[in-house]
């Protein structure tokens, strides 16, 4: 298995799977997951700015514009589902691998498949009954009972979209992995769904430190 490395590029950070030898579809999934995650990150950053402004307005000018806490609650809820995909692709969903580590590779692969199926099953149920909730919110035009009176369907639809994206990406990942298993491409399947191997991560760790040093240097030079 030959893995090309481009030290310091975004895709490698944080244990992301190397997508170079993956199909366009997988690359699209990866891009979608990253984009969703980045959007959430900006949402959290925006929430912190809005809350800071609210604190300042309240304490300096005695003004109250309420709702920053409510909106950041929605930001967190949306993040909770939109982050699922990137976390899956980066293989950062926590698995307790004490036993896994000592099992033979074929069993490991079986458990990897089972893991994706389990995630898909649970969050698929959340998606299904989440839709029931959103449908109800739309039907009765539910609003938050706060001063803001937000129509709940808006944040809930965004929240549900994150779940749908996750289920879609997880299903694609599962199909691709099963396809590779059927072709007896064990390593290819491992690259898609296995727990991050120690070796792989040592490389990343080094890369990460190198790029951080590089950036810190850059920052210093530019200041």
């Amino acid at each position: 298995m030959e893995r090309h490395r481009r030290p310091g590029t975004g895709a490698h950070r944080r244990g992301q799977v190397n997508m170079d030898n993956h199909s366009p579809l997988m690359r699209l999934c990866s891009k979608a997951g990253d984009a969703a995650a980045l959007a959430c990150g900006l949402l959290i950053l925006a929430a912190s700015v809005v809350i800071t402004l609210e604190i300042m307005a309240r304490n300096l000018f005695g003004m109250s514009f309420n709702g920053a806490d409510e909106l950041s609650g929605y930001a967190l809820a949306i993040t909770s589902t939109w982050a699922l995909s990137a976390t899956l692709l980066a293989r950062r969903h926590i698995r307790i691998d004490s036993l896994y580590a000592i099992l033979p590779r074929p069993v490991q692969l079986a458990l990897d498949v089972l893991s994706i199926v389990a995630m898909l099953a649970f969050f698929g149920l959340v998606l299904r009954y989440g839709w029931v909730m959103v449908d109800r919110s739309l039907t009765i035009n539910a609003k938050s009972m706060t001063p803001l009176g937000t129509p709940l369907a808006i944040p809930q639809i965004l929240w549900l979209a994150g779940l749908a994206l996750f289920c879609l990406i997880a299903a694609i990942l599962l199909c691709k992995a099963l396809g590779r298993l059927l072709r007896r491409d064990w390593n290819g399947a491992r690259q898609l769904i296995s727990n991050r191997s120690t070796l792989e991560e040592v490389h990343e760790e080094l890369e990460d430190a190198a790029s951080r040093d590089g950036q810190a240097r850059q920052a210093k030079e530019s200041s």
Binding site: G10, R13, L42, I44, A83, A90, Q215, A219
Partner: peptide
């Protein structure tokens, strides 16, 4: 820098996503 901020945001979301899923 945008690169630094992007890394920080992605890191935040991956950590938060891992925690919130649990």
């Amino acid at each position: 820098s945008w690169a630094m901020l992007k890394q920080a945001l992605m890191g935040t979301i991956l950590t938060t996503g891992m925690m919130l899923a649990i």
